[in-house]
Design a protein around this nucleic acid. Structure first.
Length: 103
DNA sequence: TGACTGACCAACA
DNA sequence: CTGTTGGCCAGTC
């Protein structure tokens, strides 16, 4: 088993429940790298090759910053809408209702 | 080893 | 409001 940050992120992302989303900052905080949301983005970039629901991870503002990194730019939003996750402005997740903090 | 990069965040002009 | 800057960490060249 690895102690890398990569694995911690995979575990957390795999625990995100249906209909909820979390943020880079929260994941970073739970992993101990409170101020390094960038590293979370790096990990997710690798995780996109896995079966993990990386589409449930958004930035601090609820924006789908990584959508362009998916197979198609619309895939991320499609998946989230498919889980009944409310959107604001048509492109941002309503964190007020959907933010999930990993335990 | 040192510099660069990245799905970020916050502070500041 | 937008643009810039610094900071953070790990991986790659």
């Amino acid at each position: 088993m690895n102690n890398s940050f990569f694995d911690k992120v995979s575990i957390i992302v795999s625990k995100i429940p249906y209909g909820k989303v979390t943020t880079y900052g929260e994941i970073a905080a739970v992993c101990g790298l409170k101020s390094s949301a960038r590293t979370v983005g790096w990990a997710l970039k690798s995780l996109k090759h896995s079966n993990l629901p990386c589409h449930r991870v958004v930035n601090r503002n609820g924006e789908l910053t990584g959508k362009l990194n998916f197979a198609t730019p619309t895939l991320m939003k499609e998946l989230l809408e498919n889980e009944n996750i409310p959107f604001i402005d048509g492109d941002k997740v309503d964190l007020k209702q959907c933010l999930w903090i990993p335990k």
